[in-house]
Design a protein around this nucleic acid. Structure first.
Lengths: 207, 207
DNA sequence: AATCCAGGTGAATAAGCGTTCATTCACGTT
DNA sequence: AACGTGAATGAACGCTTATTCACCTGGATT
């Protein structure tokens, strides 16, 4: 079992509370998890949480936002390392997605299942990150189509690119829903197969 | 806005309560919806619900199960109509999935978001339906591969077929999360594109 | 006309929820 | 030694929840 990663920011205690929250959110859902359970998991009483987070909702927001930002960071790094070559860019982005959603399914599932519960600017911020990630992939697909490396379903307009980016990301994101360690398949094997599927969806020439 | 379909079984009042529940579950989530809200939407008080369902959980179970069964019925009908021709079978199954998840996203989203809340035999029953649907598609893919119509990523063993079936269904199922009527795309256009993507994922020869 | 009964009511129950607050304790600095 | 501060406590707050139950009513059956 891969251990859950702690969020990037915050004090030691904030990270401890966040880690406990992720674990509980993963197993029960955020709505079914009480402040009592989170603090108890850290050996505290309910009131203590409010020394570190403004509310239960803020804790959820911080957790979900950090998971999204970490994904975006990794995608950016992998993308920039091969910038200019659409085929390599697609491989890189899908590779990061598969790794993060199969290897760290705890955090991935929490982020994807629970972000709907946020409201107002917190929700908007998370949705903005998700949209940036989607648009980034759509750009790669469109560039690849224009230079002849890809052949998108639906033509060469931007909406065709978005309409290919969405299902590619959907299939990757939802690895966190079904992929368990005990499957007879190593993570790198899984990654290669999903990269292969994505290349087909983009209409890359078979090699 | 496509109106939500009523579940198949049950008395008139049961169907009315179920329809109100689906509407509320869709907008707020099942956990955030109270018995009070459901009955109030039908002009009743909370206690009345227990004349028709054993509990709130049972209501959720009935709703989620019926939506799954209805999907399975449609898939079965479409599949059997073209049985024997894997390429047409794949087209038919994906077509039904796209239509049901884009055209009836209310029911689809409720089923897919909330079925996790079920427990015990109720959960097992729904998961069994989902597994049957997945295995059916995997069978089609494997048969198509064996007769040379498809060329699956990862070879000709059954696990390769399952590993292609899952992402195909994932991308279809999650149409209900983002597809809104006001998108500049008709449902049949969307269906054709998704069928095209699925054919590519299966490795069908381009026509 | 008498009976029945499905089905809604409205109140009650016990539990759980997120959150607040005065207090206390331990630690580091002046 | 005096002080300020970060942090946990434990009790309480007000509210909502799912569920139960005795009671009532209106329409169909006998």
């Amino acid at each position: 079992m891969t251990e859950s990663e702690l969020p990037l920011a915050g004090s030691r205690i904030q990270r401890r509370l966040a880690a406990a929250a992720i674990d509980l959110f993963y197993r029960q859902g955020a709505l079914a998890t009480s402040v009592r359970q989170i603090t108890e998991a850290c050996g505290m009483t309910p009131g203590a949480l409010y020394n570190h987070f403004g509310s239960k909702d803020e804790l959820l927001y911080v957790v979900v936002r950090d998971i999204h930002l970490r994904l975006e960071d990794e995608v950016t790094a992998a993308h920039e390392a091969v910038a200019g070559d659409p085929l390599a860019e697609l491989r890189a982005i899908v590779g990061v997605y598969v790794t993060r959603h199969a290897d760290h399914q705890e955090t991935a599932r929490v982020a994807n299942r629970e972000y709907h519960l946020l409201s107002g600017v917190w929700y908007d911020e998370v949705v903005a990150i998700r949209r940036r990630l989607r648009d980034r992939l759509a750009d790669v697909l469109l560039a690849g189509h224009k230079c002849g490396e890809f052949h998108l379903v639906g033509g060469d307009d931007r909406s065709a690119a978005v309409l290919t980016a969405i299902p590619i990301l959907d299939m990757c994101v939802h690895l966190s829903e079904w992929f368990h360690e005990h499957r007879p398949l190593g993570p790198t094997d899984l990654r290669d197969r999903y990269v292969g599927l994505a290349l087909r969806m983009a209409g890359a020439r078979p090699d």
